[in-house]
Design a protein around this nucleic acid. Structure first.
Lengths: 246, 246
DNA sequence: ACCTGAACACCGTTCAAGT
DNA sequence: ACCTGAACACCGTTCAAGT
């Protein structure tokens, strides 16, 4: 922390131009984690297009070029964000690393944990879904080797065969990705992160809603959706499907 | 091809500076559809980051600024691409506008039609999933009002109540989005559209596969997946789920 | 009517130079 | 060791100007 690098004795407090903390000691402003956290905050506040090396630098009181000591590229930064996001699962006390009360309980906790992450970071979650993975079989949103290993091992401990554990992994990721992407997309429309100047009129397609009588009539029904209930229903259905094969 | 701009007037035939077709008549080179098609081709060939106003102009033998006669912005172009993509469903003879042999047949044809579109445009499909929609209840990948109307009306003609038709719409879109996004993502890893110079070593996460014995053992099983069969299985499961409520 | 040249305010990234 | 200035090759977009 207090490395006191190249401090000229004469001028005292502000001679180096480096920022200082409130204790007065010189401060190592940057490290990869701080950069990633700042990037996440920037995206969550202003949207993905706002994540610019220059703006991110400004956020950290530094020039953009300084960031390249800690990341080879902006792309690499995005990958780092995705990794950090998935790792938040470890900090969730509701999520278990291994089944403790049956595989249904385990899967349910995991599903809700990932859902909490998605809802907490609606602007960031699409990155989890769309960034290229390391291998074909690494599927978002469960895209850390450690969690895939946990999942497969956990289900096998509960009696799943190799085949069935892999089958469950595939069904589980498909279910999660579809639901959570739809959920954060719906959130995104509500909070409207779009910065395209005054394009709201273009939004509702070439022809107006009036041309579709059925849609017009069902609009209230379509608009009122309990996404949590829908998530739970679909999860229950998944469980039922897995129950049949185990 | 023949960059005949700024042609001296003396040469007669090329006095206008506009390009000509092989019949010799002056030609309107640009229109919105041609631009959108060129953009789709560019993305499918070189990836989304390659879609640049300047590069797209070059593709059409025109300066970038000329495109702004036909689109207000690059963002609007992306929305146009998504619309064109979804509209390809109308050109698919296997897909029916209304049920003709039961709702299961109708839904199955629709699902496979959208899957064909996704697989035909793996670089483009993520746009369908992630572009902001016009309303919360417009869900990718079924994001045209006309298709939503068709879907709801179709199911109601087959005996679905308002509630159940909307329920089916939600379950159907969730299923499609999850599966197809995973499928094109897996494709994307195979064909490797990444242009990040030599980042292949970074890809496989901080720790190697060797640290996860179970994963290492199951890797062959994870790698060999029949995505079409998986799609059909999951679709059948969806049908079964809907069967229960109708 | 349709396209271009020039310009503006940005980008990501490199690299020699400062401290 | 860590950060900056200056520079390069790009971006999207505007607008007066050409034909």
């Amino acid at each position: 922390m207090s490395g006191a690098h190249t401090m000229p004795a004469s001028t005292g407090a502000f001679s180096t131009g480096a920022s200082r903390n409130h204790c007065g000691g010189p401060v190592r402003r940057l490290d990869r984690n701080a950069i990633l956290r700042a990037a996440m905050g920037l995206v969550e506040r202003d949207g993905l297009p706002a994540l610019t090396m220059r703006r991110l630098g400004a956020e950290l009181d530094v020039q953009a070029m300084a960031l390249y000591r800690y990341t080879p590229s902006r792309e690499n930064l995005l990958d780092g964000i995705v990794e950090l996001l998935v790792d938040e699962l470890y900090a969730d006390p509701e999520v278990l690393l291994q089944p403790a009360a049956g595989w249904q309980d385990y899967i349910s906790r995991l599903a809700h944990g990932i859902r909490r992450i998605a809802l907490a970071h609606p602007h960031l979650f699409p990155l989890v879904a769309t960034r290229p993975a390391a291998a074909q079989w690494v599927r978002p949103p469960l895209r850390s080797l450690r969690w895939i290993e946990s999942f497969l091992t956990g289900l096998q401990a509960e009696g799943f065969s190799d085949q069935n554990a892999v089958y469950a992994y595939r069904a589980f990721t498909g279910f999660l990705l579809g639901h959570l992407l739809l959920e954060v997309a719906a959130l995104g429309v509500e909070i409207n992160p779009v910065d395209s100047g005054g394009a709201d009129s273009v939004g509702l397609s070439p022809d107006p809603l009036q041309d579709y009588p059925n849609l017009l009539r069902l609009q209230p029904l379509l608009a009122q959706n309990d996404s949590e209930q829908e998530f739970k229903d679909s999860l229950a259905n998944l469980m039922h499907r897995l129950q049949a094969v185990v």
